[in-house]
Write a protein that binds this DNA or RNA. Structure first.
Length: 650
RNA sequence: GCUGAAAUAGCUCAGUUGGUAGAGCACUUCACUCGUAAUGAAGGGGUCGCCGGUUCAAAUCCGGCUUUCAGCUCCA
C-alpha cells in the first residue's frame, strides 16, 4: 500500500500498519507530539491501522483538529477525576468545543472549590501517565457492559446508535468510557489545562429532560498558550458591550423597570438616532415607502397571521380572553400591519414591487433567563420592512435586500465579521410551520437558487426557519464567540394568502404576490452592542455621540471656545465645550477617557490668531472618512495658519 | 423557564465566628487661570437590592421576591 504524506512524500508498505508506528518511523519527536491524524480528509485515531492506499496527515496540537483530540482526551481525564472523587456521579457526554471541552455528569452541582479539587485530581491522573487503549464490543455486550458499570446515559447512547455502528470504548487505567475517539495515546501531552466554570445543561439539549451538571474547561499542549488564552479572555471582557456600554453611559437597566428593558442614555440614544437617520435616508433612496403603524392590535389580527397559534407564548397579551370583550397584544413584528397598508387599495402589477419600511419598536416576551445587555431584550427597535413582489421579481428584489444589508455592514465596518446562514425548516417537525412539505421544498429550493445566483457563501441550518418561510440570516459573533442574528431576509409564501393580498396582473387576473420580510441593519440595540465590541467603544467619527470637544486653556478663552463650537455646530458637527476650571492636561485626559475623537485646544495664541490646535484619533474607516476630512477642513477654515495635528496612538 | 453564582456610596470594591458602615475614583465648595493623560485643601453622600423570619441585637443567619452574571433551552 502507498501512503502519501502531507509534504508529498510517499511511503510504501507490504503489510498494514498503525498510524502511530508510521509517526515513529518519521521521527520520534513527531510521534510524541502527535494527537490524531487525518486520513483522506477524515480525522482518525493514531491507533488506526492503515491497510490501503491513502493520504495521511499526522496532526498535532498546533492543528485545530489535533487540538480537538487533545481537549477531548482532557475531558476524559476530567471524567475519570470526577468518578474518583464522586463515585456516584453518572457519565453523560464530554466533547471538545471551539474554546476547549466540557463534560456532563448526573451529579450534585459543582462549586468552584469542587472544580479546584477536580483539577488537582486531574493533574495526578496525567502524572500517573496511564496508557489509553481502545477496544470494541458488539452492541449487546456493550450495553450489558455499561449497565454493569451503572451508566444509564451511556446505555441510552448505545441504544440510539444504528444497528451496524462500531461501538468503541477507550480506557485509561481503571477508567473506561464509551467514545468514538479520537484520543491521544496517553494523557501525558496535556501540559496545560484549566477548568473554567460549571453550569447546568439538559440531557441531550432538551429542556424536558433531566438537568445535568456540566463542567467547562480548556486545554493546550503548552503552558504559554493557556496563559495567552486566559489573558486574551481578560482583554475580551473589557470590550464586552454589557460592561463597556454601561461604563460609557450608553445604556443602563433599572430593577423596577424590568428585565430586558434597557434605558438608552443620551449618548446611546444619539448613536441610535444617527443610525436611524442614515438607514431611513438610504432606504428612501432605494425606493422604500415609510409607514408608521400601531404598536398593538386586537387578538384577531394575530389569529389571521397565525401568530396566535405559533407565537402566543412570545407575545405580551393585554387583557383576559375569558373576561374581556377585546383582547390586545403588543406587536412582536410588523408584518400584518404593513400588509394592511398594502391592502388599502387594489394593486396592479405596475405598483409592484411595493417596498415598505418602518422603524419599529417590537415587544417579545422572552423567558426570564434569556435577557442579556442590549442583545436580547423584551422591547427593541428594528429597521423592519416588507416587500410585496410578483413571482418574477423575487430574484431581483431579494438581491436588492442582500445588497442593502451588505451596504450597511460595509459602512459599519462589520462586513468581515459576519457569516451567512440559510435557515430552513425541520422536516421532522412540520407542525411548527404553515403549509405543506411540498411547498416548503419548493420555496427552499427557490432560496438556494437565488443565493447561488447572488453568489454568497452560506451554511444551511435545519429547524431555524420562521414559521412562514425560510430565512437568509446574517450571523455575527460577540466577543465571547456567541453567535446571534444581525440581519435577516426572509421569503414568505403563506401570509399573502392568509391576508388575501392580491395584485392584478397584465392578463387582468388577480394573482398572489410573494412577500420578502427583511431588515436592513437589523435591531438597533443589538447592532449598537456589536459596534461597542467591534470598536471597543472608539466609534467611527460619524457615529460618535460627541465628535469634537473644545478645550479652553482657561476661563479667559471660553468666549472664543464657544465661537469655535458654534461654527462647528452650524455644520452639524456634534460639539461641546469643556468650561470647567480644570487644567488642560486634566481636560485632555477626560476627553480621551470619554473617547471623543477630536479635541480642539484653544488658548491665548489661538484666540488671537483665530486658530485651533487639533488633537485627534483618526480611525480611517469608510463611514467616517468624509466626516474626518470635513472636520479637518473646518478646522483649517477656522485657522489662518497651518493645523498642528497631533495624532495619538490609542 | 431550568442549574449555579452574585447584589454594600454614582463607579470599582474592603468589611469571617451577628454588636452603632470603610477605601480609591467620581460629586460639591474654596484656592489656583493654568499649554497637550490626573493642582491642592475641605466637605457631602449608604434603612448594606426588596419583603418577611430567627435573635436582646442582622450588611452578616434562614425563607420568599426582584435584578445581574455564567451556562442550558429559546430567539432579532
Amino acid at each position: 500500500m502507498k501512503i502519501t504524506l502531507k509534504d508529498g512524500s510517499i511511503k510504501e508498505y507490504e503489510k498494514s500498519k498503525a498510524i502511530i508506528d508510521i509517526a515513529y518511523e518519521i521521527s520520534e519527536g513527531l510521534a510524541r507530539v502527535a494527537t490524531a491524524a487525518q486520513v483522506d480528509g477524515k480525522v482518525v485515531d493514531l491507533r488506526t491501522v492503515l491497510s490501503q492506499d491513502c493520504e495521511l496527515d499526522i496532526l498535532t496540537a498546533n492543528d485545530e483538529k489535533g487540538l480537538g483530540a487533545l481537549r477531548h482526551t482532557t475531558s476524559h481525564v476530567l471524567a475519570e477525576a470526577v468518578k474518583r472523587l464522586y463515585p456516584e456521579a453518572k457519565l453523560a457526554i464530554g466533547p471538545s468545543i471551539d474554546t476547549g471541552f466540557y463534560y456532563d455528569f448526573e451529579s450534585e452541582p459543582f462549586s468552584r472549590e469542587d472544580l479546584d479539587a477536580i483539577e488537582a485530581e486531574m493533574k495526578k491522573i496525567i502524572k500517573e501517565g496511564a496508557k489509553i487503549q481502545r477496544f470494541e464490543l458488539p452492541r449487546k455486550e456493550a450495553i450489558a457492559y455499561m449497565e454493569e458499570k451503572g451508566e444509564p446515559y451511556k446505555v441510552e447512547l448505545i441504544q440510539d446508535l444504528p444497528e451496524d455502528a462500531v461501538i468503541s470504548f477507550y480506557s485509561q487505567g481503571d477508567f473506561v468510557d464509551l467514545c468514538a475517539g479520537p484520543h491521544l495515546m496517553s494523557a501525558k501531552p496535556i501540559k496545560a489545562f484549566k477548568l473554567i466554570s460549571s453550569s447546568g445543561a439538559y440531557w441531550r439539549g432538551n429542556e424536558k429532560n433531566k438537568m445535568l451538571a456540566r463542567i467547562y474547561g480548556t486545554a493546550f499542549s503548552k503552558k504559554e498558550e493557556l496563559k495567552a488564552y486566559m489573558e486574551h479572555m481578560e482583554e475580551v471582557k473589557k470590550r464586552d458591550h454589557n460592561k463597556l456600554g454601561r461604563e460609557m453611559e450608553l445604556f443602563a437597566t433599572v430593577d423596577v423597570i424590568g428585565q430586558g428593558l434597557p434605558l438608552l442614555m443620551p449618548k446611546g440614544a444619539m448613536i441610535i438616532q444617527t443610525l436611524q437617520r442614515w438607514i431611513e435616508d438610504e432606504e428612501e433612496r432605494r425606493g422604500y415607502m415609510r409607514t408608521k403603524t400601531p404598536l398593538m392590535a386586537k387578538k384577531e389580527l394575530y389569529v389571521i397571521s397565525d401568530h396566535w397559534e405559533h407565537y402566543k407564548e412570545g407575545m405580551f397579551v393585554l387583557g383576559d380572553e375569558e373576561k374581556d370583550d377585546e383582547v390586545f397584544a403588543l406587536r412582536p413584528m410588523t408584518c400584518p400591519f404593513q400588509y394592511y397598508v398594502y391592502k388599502q387599495s387594489q394593486k396592479s402589477y405596475r405598483d409592484l414591487p411595493c417596498r415598505y419600511g418602518e422603524t419599529s419598536p417590537l415587544f417579545r416576551n422572552e423567558d426570564s433567563g434569556e435577557m442579556h445587555g442590549l442583545t436580547r431584550v423584551r422591547q427593541f427597535t428594528i429597521a423592519e420592512g416588507h416587500l410585496v413582489v410578483t413571482p418574477e421579481q423575487i430574484d431581483e428584489e431579494f438581491r436588492g435586500c442582500v445588497d442593502l444589508a451588505k451596504y450597511c455592514l460595509t459602512t459599519l465596518g462589520l462586513e468581515k465579521d459576519v457569516t451567512y446562514q440559510l435557515s430552513l425548516s425541520d422536516p421532522e417537525h412540520m407542525d411548527k410551520y404553515l403549509g405543506t412539505r411540498e411547498t416548503w421544498n419548493e420555496v427552499e429550493d427557490m432560496m438556494r437558487v437565488i443565493l447561488d445566483h447572488i453568489g454568497i457563501q452560506y451554511k444551511e441550518v435545519k429547524g431555524e426557519a420562521a414559521f412562514y418561510g425560510p430565512k437568509l440570516d446574517v450571523q455575527a459573533k460577540n466577543v465571547y464567540g456567541k453567535e446571534d442574528t444581525m440581519i435577516t431576509v426572509q421569503l414568505d409564501m403563506f401570509l399573502a394568502e392568509r391576508f388575501d393580498m392580491t395584485f392584478v396582473d397584465k392578463d387582468g387576473e388577480k394573482k398572489r404576490p410573494y412577500i420578502i420580510h427583511r431588515t436592513s441593519l437589523g435591531c438597533y440595540e443589538r447592532t449598537l452592542a456589536w459596534l461597542i465590541e467591534k470598536y471597543a467603544g472608539l466609534f467611527p467619527t460619524w457615529l460618535c455621540p460627541e465628535q469634537v470637544r473644545v478645550l479652553p486653556i482657561s476661563e479667559k478663552y471660553h468666549e472664543y471656545a464657544n465661537q469655535v463650537a458654534e461654527e462647528l455646530k452650524d455644520h452639524n458637527i456634534k460639539c461641546t465645550v469643556d468650561e470647567r476650571g480644570e487644567k488642560i492636561g486634566y481636560k485632555i485626559r477626560e476627553t480621551r477617557l470619554d473617547k471623543v475623537p477630536y479635541m480642539l485646544v484653544v488658548g491665548a495664541k489661538e484666540a488671537e490668531e483665530h486658530t485651533v490646535s487639533v488633537r485627534s484619533r483618526y480611525l480611517g474607516d469608510e463611514g467616517s472618512k468624509k466626516l474626518d476630512g470635513f472636520i479637518a477642513e473646518l478646522c483649517k477654515e477656522i485657522k489662518t495658519k497651518e493645523i498642528r495635528k497631533i495624532e495619538v496612538e490609542e
